[in-house]
Nucleic acid binder design. Structure first.
Length: 130
DNA sequence: ATCTTGACTTGCC
DNA sequence: CGGCAAGCCAAGA
């Protein structure tokens, strides 16, 4: 999965399949598109990417919102709250509660490389095993 | 093709 | 989870 041309497309598709009321982390998105270390690139893509994608469901490792989201933290918080997601005063959300843990078949359908699968198993330790 | 940027992450306190 | 230094990746200049 090292086709840079499809990177944006993959990120776009993946973020678009995140369910309402759920969030994912940049690292998770990166791993699910086959590039476990490209979290920052995902952020870049999010900022300059397609606005039709529900980027509000993407937060960083600590559940913190995006500083330069259109409308700032407030704008981001409003979009999340509109889906029923609770945002704390420090602009973070409860990952344990809202993070999207994709079903096994969804992950298998992505045809990920071993390294990416490894990352998922190590970082989504909520029981699921791919 | 090199240099800089940035909605980030991983170690190590 | 909190903070800091390094590391990584794609895009823009």
């Amino acid at each position: 999965m090292s086709d840079p041309k499809q990177f944006k497309q993959r990120v776009h598709d993946l973020v678009s399949m995140v369910p309402d009321g759920k969030v994912v982390t940049y690292g998770q998105v990166a791993a699910m598109v086959g590039a476990p270390r490209a979290a920052q690139a995902v952020g870049w893509t999010a900022h300059w990417g397609d606005t039709l994608v529900p980027w509000q469901r993407v937060v960083n490792r600590h559940g913190r919102l995006a500083p330069t989201y259109p409308g700032g933290f407030l704008g981001h918080a409003e979009d999340l709250q509109a889906e029923g997601i609770e945002v704390r005063d420090d602009w973070t959300v409860d990952l344990e509660k809202y993070q999207w843990l994709p079903e096994t078949e969804v992950v298998e359908n992505l045809s990920l490389e071993p390294a990416a699968l490894e990352w998922l198993e190590a970082n989504l330790p909520y029981g699921t095993h791919y």
